[in-house]
């Protein structure tokens, strides 16, 4: 017999009171990043970074720009989800914990959007 109330089971929020949303996002971004990271490393090896012209030509392709933006969104999202768990595990004080988590989320959002905008500048702006 389960000791959980029927209402608690239906809500499905668990002891953390927020359900499995965070867990799922971390896994889905992880799965997305497996092929994206291999694509990115192979692109870098294929001398993408060697000169401004190479880099420019590479990002001028809509496919490459899309893959790079997908990678950036997944990377910054996955990173802030991971850092959040680290903070939750090691910071135990009621003031510092939310401050650290909020700062992480704001920084990751700002850095992620800036990176995506930079890609668009190169891809579209020339």
């Amino acid at each position: 017999m389960s000791l959980r109330s029927p209402l608690g089971r239906v809500r499905g929020l668990g002891s953390a009171k927020e359900g499995v949303h965070h867990w799922w996002q971390q896994r889905v971004t992880a799965i997305a990043l497996v092929p994206l990271v291999f694509w990115f490393v192979v692109s870098i090896i294929a001398n993408v970074g060697s000169s401004y012209e190479h880099m420019h030509a590479w990002l001028s392709s809509p496919g490459n720009a899309t893959l790079l933006i997908l990678l950036l969104v997944a990377v910054f999202h996955h990173a802030q989800l991971g850092i959040q768990v680290v903070i939750e595990d090691y910071v135990h004080c009621a003031v510092m914990k939310p401050i650290a988590i909020i700062a992480t989320k704001l920084l990751a959002t700002a850095a992620g959007i800036y990176s995506v905008v930079c890609v668009l500048f190169v891809a579209i702006g020339g």
Binding site: G49, Y52, M55, H56, L59, L72, V75, F76, A79, Q80, G82, I83, A111, Y114, S115, V117, C118, V119, F121, V122, G125
Partner: peptide
Amino acid sequence: ALAVGTIVLMYWLASAA
């Protein structure tokens, strides 16, 4: 470490822009 390393990735993309 990889989360901190994204700063280098961002710097590289920003320089290209």
